[in-house]
């Protein structure tokens, strides 16, 4: 990910009227934003709609970005609120963090593509498919921590939680991911671990 300094420079110039430069910020963060929105919706169309909405909202509120935090942290906060609003509007189940039934539902509905996963030996595919079996909150936490390069404090700011709470949730999320991999990709995990 790019440094905050570059982001701040771009933001200053966009605020001074160079609107086209905003495209640089969009290109820089679109994959991160889209990945997180996809964790919530499991639908590419919806995820793209939300991601687009996020960038529009961020643009309109750009003057409110004070630079106290990194732009990415500020942007992910908008992602979280937009996703929650979208899901509320669509009356979709947002899945609670500890709702094991949700995970079971995901597993049962995904049995079609699981058959393919078993055949695939790629670590990358295995991890990315296992993460889709997690709840949106777990998947988002792992995504922000490992891909979004956000610290526990920053994730806390994004999700409105205390850093200690984030730490505990991250531990649980990783534990669940490990369990998912062990349950669904037993052989692959053995190959990797040995």
């Amino acid at each position: 990910m790019n440094t905050g300094t570059n982001d701040n420079e771009i933001i200053s110039r966009v605020l001074r009227g160079e609107q086209s430069l905003y495209a640089d910020l969009v290109k820089r963060y679109q994959n991160y934003v889209f990945t997180i929105t996809l964790r919530y919706t499991n639908s590419r169309e919806d995820a793209e709609e939300i991601a687009q909405d996020v960038f529009v909202k961020a643009y309109r509120s750009l003057a409110d970005f004070r630079g106290d935090s990194r732009f990415s942290t500020w942007l992910y906060t908008i992602v979280t609120t937009t996703c929650i609003t979208f899901l509320r509007k669509k009356k979709l189940d947002t899945h609670s963090l500890d709702n094991e039934k949700v995970f079971e539902t995901v597993e049962s509905t995904d049995s079609g593509f699981k058959a393919n996963q078993v055949e695939q030996k790629s670590k990358v595919q295995m991890v990315n498919k296992a993460i889709r079996l997690l709840s949106p909150d777990d998947a988002k936490l792992i995504t922000l921590f490992y891909q979004g390069e956000q610290s526990l404090e920053e994730i806390g700011h994004i999700m409105g939680l205390e850093p200690n709470n984030v730490k505990v949730r991250l531990h649980r999320a990783r534990q669940r991911l490990k369990e998912k991999m062990e349950t669904h990709f037993e052989q692959e995990v053995k190959d990797i671990m040995n």
Binding site: Q30, N31, F34, A47, K123, V124, V127, N128, I131, I142
Partner: peptide
């Protein structure tokens, strides 16, 4: 595994 294998989805 998570540090090296997680992929970002592209719109």
């Amino acid at each position: 595994l998570m540090s090296n294998s997680l992929e970002l989805d592209e719109p």
